[in-house]
Nucleic acid binder design. Structure first.
Lengths: 131, 131
DNA sequence: TTTAATGATACTAAAATAGTATCAATTATA
DNA sequence: TATAATTGATACTATTTTAGTATCATTAAA
């Protein structure tokens, strides 16, 4: 059961690396080298983080990526959301054919409360907290 | 984020159907027909449930499947376990390269406690409880 | 103007999931 | 005892998702 996909994983590693080395701007290449991650793939990941407003990006020579949000304010759930969408454990009964009574369904209620709990707890952990 | 795969889903539906129609023995075909599930696939699913000791199976004419555990004692987690393995949300950092300090890692601790909670809560719901 | 960076996007590869096909073994019953 | 109706086992195919590559365009510093 895969809860964290590789994009999320690599993103977290990259962000942790950046946070640890409190510098300003990092290029894809230096992160990839240090963390031993596939460059081109990592690049797309950092681009996504930039689109998701977690990082700022600078094109051209001497360019790279820097935090646009403090590492202490980036939650694990924010990263998961960018790569895997909202955490939603309630996509259970495919097509929902069985769930006529979605509002009263005990299973769904239970899944919902579990879901909230997972979100709440993961929302407490930030990049900084991971160091 | 897919928490429940299709096997698990179909298995739950089939079991709910069986539990609802308190009869003894059901054939794959009648369950498939009623629930509109792909027969051959469903068959493999019921076979797995039999291997997992949730159902008893009877070969030959007039054969089929029946509960070998009361529906009130079959937990959702039992079914998930059969098709998706143990619920484990802690498979995070691929290869664990980053997690030197696995014992002290705050993230892992958090994931572990979330995991326990999910298991505990889903362990409270049985097939009977889903009806 | 060159070089070192990201932006965007199309493509390929690998793995997981979903589903089919088929033959063997078993059992009730005509 | 032969037949038909079932599950057991297993190999195969198809689809979808995940992982990763290739490449050209754009930007900006030196």
């Amino acid at each position: 059961m895969k809860f964290i996909t590789r994009d999320t994983d690599y993103a977290l590693r990259a962000l942790m690396f950046m946070a640890k080395n409190g510098r300003e701007v990092f290029t894809v290449d230096e992160i990839a080298r240090d963390q031993r991650l596939p460059r081109v793939f990592l690049r797309r990941i950092l681009q996504a983080l930039a689109k998701g407003k977690m990082l700022a990006s600078y094109k051209g020579k001497e360019g790279g990526f820097s935090f646009s949000v403090q590492p202490g304010r980036i939650r694990v759930t924010d990263i998961i959301r960018i790569f895997q969408g909202d955490i939603d454990l309630t996509h259970c009964f495919v097509g929902k054919r069985i769930c006529h009574n979605r509002k009263t369904c005990a299973f769904r209620k239970k899944l919902n409360s579990i879901n909230q709990m997972v979100n709440r707890e993961l929302g407490k952990i930030t990049i900084e907290g991971l160091l």
